[in-house]
């Protein structure tokens, strides 16, 4: 465990909490993609299947339970809460699950470290996490005016990924024999997806203006 990895995990948790609190406090999920949230839930469930038999550390186990729990709550709010579900922007959140899930499923069958069910599901979760933000980015693009909390949510998520890259660089430099190509490449692609958003987020912040994405 190094500071970059720890910062990454905390930022990830923070991003989820920002979103959950926003929904809870405003009773609105306007601008939030349910597709992205459900994809993240699928990511967490397929990756953390080993929760019960593959104990690594209390730290990891607590985070796994918290990520699954908080993301489930967000999905529950958006689907079931009597007021929140009315604010869901389903007309703009039209990204097809299949476009993301199918290629990731095929890729995880073709490229994996070991050919067994749990290894393949784990690999699938790595690939799916890389692209799960796409429905959210498309929704932001469509609605143009991004409210502050939604913008901060996406920014914190991107920052979490950036810190994971620093963590890999640090581990590569300090741990002999450490290499993780599958995770690195997926992670680089995932972080790359945020670059465009980052650019506009920083611009808006510098000019202390409301975040607006171009068409």
């Amino acid at each position: 465990m190094n500071l970059f990895r720890f910062a990454g995990d905390i930022l990830h948790l923070l991003s989820i909490l920002v979103l959950l609190l926003k929904i809870h406090a405003t009773k609105s999920c306007a601008g939030i993609s349910l597709k992205t949230q459900e994809l993240y839930l699928a990511v967490f469930i397929t990756r953390y299947l080993d929760l019960f038999w593959n104990f690594h550390s209390l730290y990891n186990s607590v985070f796994k339970v918290v990520y699954i729990g908080t993301t489930s709550m967000i999905v529950w709010y958006m689907r079931r809460h009597r007021n929140v579900k009315l604010t869901y922007d389903r007309d703009h959140d039209t990204f097809r699950y299949l476009f993301l899930v199918a290629p990731c499923a095929v890729l995880s069958l073709l490229i994996n470290a070991r050919y067994n069910l749990f290894e393949i599901l784990w690999t699938f979760s790595i690939y799916l996490e890389a692209v799960a933000i796409l429905p959210q980015l498309v929704l932001l693009q469509r609605t143009k005016n991004v409210d502050n909390l939604t913008g901060n949510y996406v920014f914190l998520l991107g920052l979490y990924r950036a810190f994971y890259i620093l963590n890999w660089v640090y581990r590569f430099a300090t741990e002999p024999g450490y290499s993780a190509w599958l995770v690195w490449i997926s992670g680089l692609i995932q972080t790359g997806l945020y670059l465009d958003f980052f650019y506009y987020y920083v611009q808006a912040w510098k000019q202390s203006k409301k975040l607006q994405l171009p068409s």
Binding site: D9, N54, H56, S57, K64, Y67, A113, W122, A180, L182
Partner: peptide, 10 residues
């Protein structure tokens, strides 16, 4: 061993 090494991250 490699895949165990990967799985110490979240």
């Amino acid at each position: 061993a490699q895949s165990n090494l990967l799985k110490d991250e979240l």
